[in-house]
Design a protein around this nucleic acid. Structure first.
Length: 630
DNA sequence: CTATTGACTA
């Protein structure tokens, strides 16, 4: 029953006919004249597997068929292996089903490994079950693949079962199985179990050390990863390319440029700088350490770039806030004929969101839909990125559509919706989202409350905003940070409760920063409270004397109350200290391009029409009673 | 006489 249920689907294509063309042997039979015996055939098949030479592999298959070399355990295994390595798992399955597999552990090992190599962990595990069910005794070649399969399908219980079985079969000291077990346990963050397996093994090779180092690195145990790395050195084991990539990822997260550079030196010394993965890890490390130039240098030098190389260099630019650079590189990638994947898209979308380049973002969303990316994978990252794009661009209806379709939502998904509604003035929708989030049993984080509080601020929901600040720590265990206080001060200020806001600035448990003071100052000016405005401006001036904005603020505050002598004084200090006001700029997306406007810049090709339009707009706005603050 | 383990990007 179990067999039928699981394998009925695969049986269909499993009949040993067709994808393999037997006529080739007679037509091109010549090259095989010398292959008089089975070992020679098997050696040739291994060559084919290694070089992914499917054509010659098929020819060998037919030759072996004609000469009666099939149906031996050896030929079966080699053929399955060859087809698997050539990514022809269906053909591998045909060979398996044609063999007398029920007595053959070799065939099972080969087909299980074949599924793993073709990233099909579920069928791999099912074949292991089928093997046990048929009474075939697994050996030391079975367990590494099966352990990997179990961890890939997130069956931690099965990993434990295999661990137990090892003692029964006397395989507990096998290095291959041990490495796979360490890897699997660490994937589930079971550090004690991994440690136990590691320590039980009498001999430790570089693969086992790497499983420990990289496993800890991937679950965020960076100190532990580095400690194991040191242990490996003390043990006299020479780091391999796999060690290097794992350790570099740790230096990358920690922003440890010195050790990263040292590792780069080691890479060159060992000649590891010819591998793509190592170079990708170096790009990432330099990028995270803010050395964009070094990252680019490595990227440009690489003659063999893969999708990870492109994603890494794009990510380097995006994380440095260079959104234009991100989109430029994305364009270069497409022109180079490299297909973007989910990682590319989740990296590029925030650049579109930040530039409010809605059309670019929409195009990418369209690309995803057409290519079925993110359709069967319920990738919360990419869906969040799309929601954020629409939310930041003010398309809340579209953002909500994506949100509703997501089968799995995390805190960020809710935060994006709350922030989006709040940002565009729909305070009540934002608060509604927050209640629904609580109902859905999600635990709000500090970002949630920034969204909630800024929503209250923009919609003028003062009393509730106050309430949230008071309750966030008590009820939800989130300690208010300076950002939260800024939101509330901004909210009180906008509502004209300046005294209240000032009281909060002076009484909050955190030191006020220029952002807080600027929010407060803006409120003072809005409500014409000059004395408090001067206090705020003074504070900003003291905290950031080198910032051009501080001078402008001071001079504006004095200007507003007619203290022109002080205005001149401030301007004088600016001139003396050579402080320049950075020009303001804004941008708009039109058709295929983003048009940037800088204050005082009249170099746009359609300058005349733009300013004519602008003047008529200004006139219409004034007609409606708007008086600009000059 | 086969075969099996470990890596980089959001």
């Amino acid at each position: 029953m179990i067999k039928r249920a699981i394998f009925s689907g695969t049986r269909l294509k499993a009949d040993f006919h067709s994808p393999i063309n037997f006529s080739t042997a007679s037509s091109t039979g010549q090259p095989f004249q010398s292959l008089a015996n089975l070992p020679t055939c098997i050696a040739s098949l291994q060559e084919c597997a290694h070089h992914k030479n499917l054509t010659r592999g098929k020819q060998l298959h037919s030759y072996m068929f004609i000469n009666g070399f099939l149906y031996s355990p050896l030929s079966t295994t080699s053929l399955i292996n060859m087809y698997s390595k050539c990514n022809r798992i269906a053909d591998a399955l045909s060979v398996f089903n044609a063999s007398t597999h029920d007595q053959n552990v070799f065939a099972y090992n080969a087909i299980i490994a074949g599924f793993i190599a073709n990233e099909l962990p579920k069928p791999a595990f099912e074949f292991y079950c089928r093997m046990r069910f048929a009474g075939v005794v697994p050996d030391k070649f079975t367990f590494p693949s099966v352990t990997k399969a179990c961890s890939d399908i997130l069956e931690v219980l099965e990993v434990r079962k295999i661990h137990g079985l090892l003692f029964k079969f006397g395989l507990e000291f096998d290095l291959f199985i041990g490495s796979a077990l360490v890897h699997s346990y660490l994937k589930f963050a079971l550090m004690e179990e991994a440690q136990e397996v590691f320590e039980e093994l009498p001999v430790r090779d570089v693969v086992l050390w790497n499983a420990m180092i990289n496993g800890h690195a991937q679950i965020g145990q960076f100190d532990m990863a580095l400690e194991v790395f040191r242990g490996m050195g003390e043990d006299g084991v020479v780091p391999s390319r796999f060690t290097v990539t794992g350790v570099l990822s740790v230096f990358s997260v920690l922003g440890d440029l010195n050790n990263g550079k040292a590792m780069h030196g080691f890479v060159v010394k060992m000649g590891y700088d010819s591998g793509v993965a190592v170079l990708n890890a170096l790009i990432d490390m330099y990028g995270k350490c803010k050395c964009v130039v070094d990252a680019l240098e490595i990227f440009d030098m690489m003659d063999e770039k893969d999708i990870v190389s492109w994603n890494s260099i794009i990510c380097v630019h995006e994380q440095c806030g260079d959104h234009d650079g991100t989109l430029e590189l994305f364009d270069r990638m497409l022109n180079a004929g490299v297909q973007p994947d989910l990682v590319t898209i989740t990296t590029v979308l925030p650049a579109c969101s930040h530039l409010a380049a809605l059309m670019h973002g929409r195009e990418i969303h369209g690309y995803m839909i057409i290519n079925g990316l993110g359709k069967d994978s319920y990738d919360v990252y990419v869906n969040n990125a799309i929601m954020d794009l629409y939310a930041k661009c003010g398309c809340m209806r579209e953002a909500h559509l994506v949100f509703d379709k997501m089968s799995y939502k995390d805190v960020a998904s809710w935060n994006i919706m709350i922030m989006g509604y709040g940002m565009h003035g729909f305070g009540n929708d934002a608060l509604d989202m927050f209640s629904r989030m609580i109902e859905a049993q999600l635990k709000p984080d500090e970002v949630t409350f920034v969204g909630v509080l800024s929503a209250c601020s923009h919609a003028g929901i003062v009393s509730q905003g106050h309430e949230f600040l008071a309750q966030m720590q008590l009820k939800y265990g989130v300690v208010p940070t300076i950002e939260h206080y800024t939101c509330v001060i901004d909210m009180l200020g906008r509502a004209g409760q300046l005294e209240e806001a000032y009281k909060l600035v002076s009484s909050m448990p955190i030191e006020a920063n220029p952002v807080v003071w600027r929010a407060f100052l803006a409120a003072c000016r809005l409500h014409g409270n000059e004395p408090l405005a001067e206090v705020a401006a003074q504070q900003i001036f003291e905290l950031e004397p080198e910032h051009c904005g501080s001078y402008v603020l001071m001079s504006n505050v004095y200007g507003a109350v007619g203290r022109y002598e002080e205005v001149l004084e401030v301007r004088d200090i600016m001139r003396q200290q050579n402080v320049r006001k950075t020009p303001g700029c804004s941008w708009i997306e039109l058709g295929n391009g983003v048009h940037v406007f800088v204050t005082g810049d009249r170099t746009h090709p359609e300058d005349y029409f733009i300013y004519a339009g602008l003047n008529s707009l200004t006139a219409r706005v004034s007609e409606h009673g708007f008086v600009p603050d000059v």
